[in-house]
Design a protein around this nucleic acid. Structure first.
Lengths: 133, 133
DNA sequence: CTACGAAGTAGAGCCGACTCCAGGTCAAGC
DNA sequence: GCTTGACCTGGAGTCGGCTCTACTTCGTAG
């Protein structure tokens, strides 16, 4: 184990649910807010902050934000103060998309639930007939 | 225009929002409940039923059901009566997944909304300072 | 009779997001 | 000193879901 706050890539993979492959991939794609530190032998050493950032990125990905847009956001954060409006824009736009996604998903859910109901009724009616015989 | 109930692939594309490419692809993948009829010159002729079925498939796709699973479901429907329990299983399983997806999406939404709120506060406080000067 | 547009087929290509591979370093344990 | 296991790099491969290409065939309009 690395000293105190430092985590290896394997440990981060465990804690975030990402694969080590994905972690290296994300780094190469520039979606880590701070340059990942390196320990002896060139090994990556992650801090808790890195994990927190990754967890947010995971949320963004899960909700469908494409990697390039996460990179744009990350770059703004890396640049530091002064571009908060731009960051806000990205987030709001994404929020909008997620909202739409949820509405769509709800529509799908309604249809599926309707169909499940119909099939359940049907299956039950068949079962009832079988008992009645 | 084809007679009465028959629609060309182009018309179906318009009405469903799928591309003609996608329509042919779906057919090749076996996710049309009934064999699409052919008109003169071997052209596809869709009925309202085909469109209704397609609309359901679109819902299933939108909610993340993979094409092979839609095919399985379609095959059951094509086989006709007697396999309703299997159809129900597929639908219920998918319903479960959609439910989880919605929960996840809501979690993402909460985080994003939280961040948007924080950035809005910050941006407003900066604006207020500027006015105050 | 020529051109156009919409259709047909088979099969190649593309994109995003990983995932895997080959080949190498290094530290620890036997 | 040899194996093992976790890590490193660059680059190739995969997978799903279309999308596009190339070329052909129709039917109608000019």
């Amino acid at each position: 184990m690395l000293d105190d706050m430092g985590l290896s890539i394997g440990q981060v993979a465990e804690r975030t649910g990402l694969s080590v492959h994905a972690l290296r991939f994300y780094e190469k794609e520039g979606i880590l807010a701070r340059q990942v530190q390196r320990g002896p032998g060139g090994r990556r050493v992650y801090t808790q902050q890195d994990i927190d950032w990754l967890r947010m990125c995971i949320m963004l990905r899960m909700s469908g934000m494409p990697v390039p847009e996460i990179r744009r956001y990350t770059e703004l954060v890396r640049q530091g103060d002064g571009n908060e409006l731009q960051r806000l824009d990205i987030l709001k736009e994404h929020q909008e998309r997620v909202q739409q996604q949820m509405v769509q998903l709800q529509e799908c859910m309604d249809l599926i639930t309707y169909k499940v109901g119909k099939y359940e009724d049907y299956v039950n009616s068949i079962a009832a007939k079988a008992v009645g015989q």
